[in-house]
Design a protein around this nucleic acid. Structure first.
Lengths: 212, 212
DNA sequence: TTTGGATTGAAACAAGCGTTTGAAACATAA
DNA sequence: TTATGTTTCAAACGCTTGTTTCAATCCAAA
């Protein structure tokens, strides 16, 4: 494979990430992607085999880049407290999913896949979401106490990540309801603070208790 | 319009609600709907004008039926406390959005519209979500205290509804990660309890404080 | 410079889409 | 029964889709 061929492939990957994120899998056409990437329509099938294969490569590509830049322990030092690790989790989650124009695609692509699953959802779950959630559960368990009821730990983990995903899923609606208050990259710090404030009060109040 | 014509129209509406909820607007074809409803493909354009007009009618229809059955004050008596009103809000939200097979469509349709907006999103926001959120904000303000910082009230409202929407948006993923623990209509009571437990501890902890 | 596989490009392909057509079937009132 | 407007139906319309074709072009090795 020549250098130029690799460049075409990469340009297709980058462009397709944007277009798939903007329009979703079904609505995106190969001609949209190729038009914006300034390559021939046959290039997708030559380099990736099909629209679906390109899409799967896009998902991998976006995820890898997002986690490289913002790992689960983003900005964390050795021997951090559970509270610090929770903050790093929330903060990196927000950054990874909509904190940067350059990896804008990842959060949107994942979100779309969750709402309108293609065959690629299993890949996303197995290669990302599962370990993400387990990471969170471990932190929540550490805060609640190691002997906390498992169902309570799970429920609190869902409540915590639910607050985070809200800013991803409800972005379009919130921006329409309160256009003066956008939720973008520059608001990540403030949102992190608010989620932490809410969550830590809840977890401390529940610490050492049983569910129901 | 004859009785049979009205029946055809209604059958199209019901069937279209299911199919749009299952596949989304773009992926759904008129032939899918008409095939399942056992009417001719021309019926959609005859009774509704176009696929898009049918879709908008479906959104109205699903919303009206869902709110009729589960209003914001579902099961609430006069003079209820803010905590009781919050519980009714969470409970009715869950029931309305995925608590019943008969109004399965509403939550899914709204969710899809939020992630992949069509021109109908403004309608959804103006005729439903805006007042829903304001209703919640009023409750949260009552719990935090009337002189609570407005930004804190807003943030806590987002954290609260974020927990609710999680069970809607992340359903596909949660069911894949833990197939033995499904989140369906029979789990609404338990989920309501868990959200309330988490949220009330957070709100009580924050009561009377300022955000920073 | 010549050769041969890799890559690109314009054009065409079959299939499926939303929509339209016009005749047939139906229902209702004179 | 006849006349009139409504509703259904099979078929076709024009268009877009993902994909394929095959000649033109490129580029490194011989």
């Amino acid at each position: 494979m020549s250098i130029e061929s690799a460049e075409t492939r990469l340009r297709l990957l980058e462009t397709a990430t944007q277009v798939f994120a903007e329009h979703g899998y079904a609505t995106t056409t190969i001609r949209m992607i190729c038009g914006r990437a300034k390559v021939n329509v046959a290039a997708v099938n030559y380099h990736f085999g099909s629209k679906e294969h390109l899409y799967r490569e896009v998902l991998r590509y976006a995820r890898q880049r997002a986690y490289e830049k913002y790992p689960l322990t983003y900005g964390l030092e050795e021997g951090a407290t559970p509270e610090q690790r929770l903050r790093a989790f929330v903060h990196s989650f927000l950054l990874r999913n909509f904190g940067d124009v350059r990896n804008l695609g990842f959060g949107t692509l994942t979100m779309r896949e969750m709402v309108e699953p293609t065959s690629a959802l299993d890949m996303i779950v197995d290669e990302g979401i599962r370990s993400l959630f387990e990471h969170l559960v471990a932190i929540v368990r550490a805060i609640l106490g190691e002997d906390a009821d498992e169902e309570l730990v799970q429920a609190c983990s869902r409540s915590t990540i639910g607050q985070c995903t809200f800013y991803l899923f409800s972005r379009t609606v919130m921006n329409r309801m309160a256009p003066e208050q956008q939720f973008g990259a520059e608001d990540v710090e403030r949102i992190t603070d608010q989620i932490m404030l809410f969550t830590l009060h809840a977890l401390r109040g529940l610490s050492g208790k049983k569910t129901d």
